[in-house]
């Protein structure tokens, strides 16, 4: 069975996420997201760049409602996400995979348990507590783990793994959900450069294999340009750039990052800095 077979074959309508007039304000302060509009169609890998505090994480978290949007609409494949509550919200979240900067694994559980926790929304409580996972879930877990190179760690505790391996577990957990979209909030920011490239390559390849749209918040502009099909630039809660990677020139960079500390531009390709 080839890697492509690990995913659900999607020959139905094209995946689509449509965000309109999204506003988020924490407490009574200024809005962090200001009437934001964004549409993602098909199986593209989209990166969101912007200096820290621009609102990238908030945007991603509004999509799966880890953060409550203040107003606006988010529609995923025909479902309005902002109005869902309780059981319906949980059902919608199953369709949205998320990968975190800090991996967010349960350290004291085995890799297999962490991976299977992506299926918790689908299995019975009894099966979850007793670790009696359905056969097809276990098979799928092994296939995905094999695909990302961690199958031999199935019985290891998550805290015994290196950062890159842990993030692979995080990715597999998200994919176990059979998501319709994958969100990744700075998935490589805690990793060394080499591992970081591997994870980005993996996300890009998996997006292709599984026909899955992927939305990645990323600090590293060079990686964004290399691994993604489309770059969205955010600044102060607004989208001020949205185009193909090769269109991200110095001018656009300056607009996105101007006035922010140099550290925020970590990974900006050398020639760009020289050009300014």
């Amino acid at each position: 069975m080839g890697p492509a077979g690990t995913g659900r074959v999607r020959n139905r309508e094209i995946q689509m996420l449509k965000i309109t007039e999204l506003v988020k304000r924490y407490g009574s302060g200024d809005p962090v997201l200001k009437n934001l509009n964004l549409t993602i169609e098909g199986e593209s890998v989209v990166s969101i760049i912007g200096s820290s505090g621009a609102g990238k994480s908030t945007l991603l978290r509004c999509i799966n409602r880890l953060v409550e949007p203040s107003s606006g609409s988010i529609v995923l494949n025909g479902t309005e996400l902002t109005k869902l509550r309780g059981r319906e919200l949980r059902a919608a979240r199953r369709k949205i995979g998320m990968v975190f900067q800090g991996f967010n694994l349960v350290d004291r559980l085995t890799v297999m348990e962490n991976v299977q926790s992506g299926r918790l929304g689908y299995i019975s409580t009894w099966a979850a507590v007793m670790r009696r996972y359905p056969k097809e879930d276990i098979r799928r877990a092994y296939e995905l783990m094999e695909r990302v190179g961690i199958a031999h760690y199935a019985d290891k505790r998550a805290d015994e793994l290196s950062g890159g391996e842990r993030q692979r577990v995080g990715v597999v957990r998200a994919l176990m959900q059979k998501p319709e979209i994958l969100l990744a909030d700075e998935p490589t920011a805690s990793l060394d450069p080499k591992t970081s490239e591997q994870i980005m390559g993996l996300l890009r390849d998996l997006a292709g294999e599984l026909k899955l749209p992927v939305l990645i918040n990323i600090h590293n502009v060079a990686e964004a340009k290399e691994y993604t099909d489309r770059i969205v630039g955010m600044r102060y809660g607004r989208i001020i750039f949205d185009d193909l990677p090769e269109k991200l020139d110095q001018d656009a960079m300056d607009k996105i990052y101007s006035g922010s500390p140099a550290a925020d531009r970590a990974g900006t390709p050398g020639e760009m800095r020289e050009a300014s």
Partner: peptide, 11 residues
């Protein structure tokens, strides 16, 4: 990849 394992037990 032919090893389609479908059982797992917690150590």
């Amino acid at each position: 990849m032919s090893t389609a394992r479908d059982t797992w037990h917690r150590p």
